[in-house]
Each structure stands twice: as C-alpha cells, then as structure tokens.
C-alpha cells in the first residue's frame, strides 16, 4: 500500500532585485520531484548539500511552503490544507533532526521534551503522562530516571535517542529522518541505526531517510532516490543504484564512496579520474541546456533514470 505519494513537488524561492524589488528569477530548490513510499519501507534520499533533499522533508510537514505539486498521505492530499488544518496529520508524520545538540531545547527537562507532542495532542493526566514518557525512554534504551535531567547531561548518541523518543510518542506512521546520524561517531552511529531498524519492526514504521553518507543509506534503505540540483536523477532499489548506476551523476557519487581497503587505493583514484573525465564529456547528454536534469524514464520495473 502506498503511504506517501509525492507528485511533481516544486519549492521555488523568488530572487528579488531592482528598484521595486520585482521578482527577477527563482531559485528552484525542489523542481518537479515525484516518488512513492510504500508502507513499512525505507526510502533514502541522497545528494550533496543544496540538492533539496531536506527541503522535501520539510515541505511534507509544511514547515516550508511549497510552490506547486501534490503530497498525498494515506489517501489525502495534504497540499490543499492550510498550516492549521495540517494539525491532525502531524501526529502521523514525525521528524528526527540532524543535530542532536541544537534540536533539543536546553532549558527543558527530558520529560518535558518527550511529553511535548503528547501535551499538544492528547489530554493525559500527570500520572499517565509520566508512565508514557518512562515507557518510551525505556524503549530507546535510556534509564527512566533520566527523565528529570537536562539535555546537556547526555552524550550525542543519547540525545539523538531522546529525539527519537519524542518522535515516537504519538505513534506516527511515517518518520522523516533528516541525516539522523551524520553528527555522530561510527560506534554511536551503529547503535542508532540498529535501533531505528528495531523500532521499524516493532511499530511498523515507514522511514523517509535523508542523508549524504552512501554507506549508511545503503545499509538502511530498500529504495533510493538520488537528487541533484532539486531534481531526482535516478531512483531504484539499493542494488540497482549501487551495482548498476546509469546516470553519470550517480556514477560519480558512487565512485566518491571511500575505499576501505588501502591496497586498492590506486585503483580507486584511477576510477575516479576516469569518471570525472566522463562526467565532463557526457554532461550535455544528461542535462539540458539550462543544466536541468531530464525527466525520469523507467528502464526496468523499479529502476528509473533521468535521460533525454
């Protein structure tokens, strides 16, 4: 079943100039992106910074206004709703933010941070609320006593888990994880990733996983969309993207993955040089005269590539 369908989503920002501040052009942060998320699957959006991946995540929650397009969640078109009408849907869609150091209010206790969504949506007694918070703290592997502590008393990984607990309290269907591990160490990263997978099984969650670390994305995602300058340039299941990349940009991205075997260092450098050259040469074939990627064309059941 399709849980979230994004259809031709566009987010444009006007560039104003001249004496009367007239609109001279637009920055096309997201320029016609369409994809679908099935229930229980993990969809990964990868791309460099500035490619518009986070903007998509924020546009789904209406944290940013979109210019045009449709976002259909659970059969209902969210794009028609106003910010206020979105309220019931925010229960079902939650977000985990990138930086656990700036996404938790330093003046609130953990209990208040985690209970905030509950206070907004449900009327619970103090006792019920406490029980609920303790339950989720336990779920994310933190000591229930830590509910009276402040965020600065925790390490990065623990803070990220507080952020996850906050996202879980309303039993959402979809979680948008915007680079949830890029601020963490490898060992802590492993912990958080494992944990996200466990929760997915337990709560039947659907993830929209936004990231730039291709190793992490491959580990987590069933399906991957590669973004470049506000457009999807390739989409497919993990194996297709990693083993058989078709678009020149995807090829370059895959070649940039660090090589873990020091013996093959020279080979990898050669490969990168070759692909960089190819990229220069073939660029006009993959992008139109404005440097915009073409629309996606299916080359197999699941694999779509932006080709002319």
């Amino acid at each position: 079943m399709v849980l979230l369908k994004i259809d031709d989503l566009k987010v444009h920002y006007p560039i104003r100039g001249g004496v009367f501040k007239t609109i001279s052009d637009y920055i096309r942060a997201v320029d016609g992106v369409s994809f679908e998320l099935k229930e229980g699957e993990t969809y990964g959006l990868v791309g460099e910074s500035g490619s518009g991946k986070s903007t998509i995540g924020k546009a789904i929650l209406k944290l940013i206004n979109m210019t045009s397009g449709r976002i259909v969640f659970n059969g209902q078109d969210l794009s028609k709703f106003s910010f206020g009408q979105m309220k019931p849907f925010r229960q079902d869609i939650q977000m985990i933010f990138q930086d656990p150091y700036s996404s938790l209010n330093p003046r609130k206790r953990v209990a208040d941070i985690i209970a905030e969504p509950l206070r907004n949506y449900q009327c619970l007694t103090v006792g019920e609320e406490k029980k609920c918070v303790q339950n989720y703290l336990d779920k994310v592997g933190l000591n229930p006593d830590s509910m009276y502590k402040y965020p600065h008393e925790f390490s990065g990984g623990q803070r990220q888990r507080i952020g996850i607990a906050r996202a879980l309290t309303l039993k959402p269907k979809l979680i948008i994880a915007d680079e949830p591990v890029s601020a963490l160490d490898v060992s802590v990263q492993a912990q958080v990733l494992n944990f996200l997978q466990d929760l997915q099984k337990e709560f039947k969650l659907t993830y929209l996983f936004i990231g730039h670390d291709l190793g992490v994305i491959r580990h987590m995602c069933d399906k991957i969309g590669v973004m470049y300058r506000g457009r999807l340039v390739e989409e497919g299941i993990s194996e297709e993207i990693y083993e058989n990349p078709q678009h020149i940009y995807t090829k370059r991205l895959i070649a940039a993955i660090p090589e873990l075997n020091p013996e093959r260092r020279a080979q990898k450098t050669e490969l990168r040089k070759k692909i960089a050259k190819e990229y220069e040469q073939l660029y006009p074939e993959y992008f139109d005269e404005h440097g915009r990627a073409y629309d996606l064309k299916s080359i197999s059941n699941t694999h779509r590539v932006a080709m002319p």
Binding site: V186, S187, A190, L193, N194, R218, Y242
Partner: peptide
C-alpha cells in the same frame, strides 16, 4: 561498526 558496502540490512556491531 562501519556500515559495509556489501552486506545489507544486517545488524551493525555496537561497542
């Protein structure tokens, strides 16, 4: 604990 490029969906090692 590094997510490997080859094996998929397996649990990562945690210290």
């Amino acid at each position: 604990s590094i997510p490997s490029q080859v094996t998929n969906k397996k649990r990562l090692h945690v210290i």
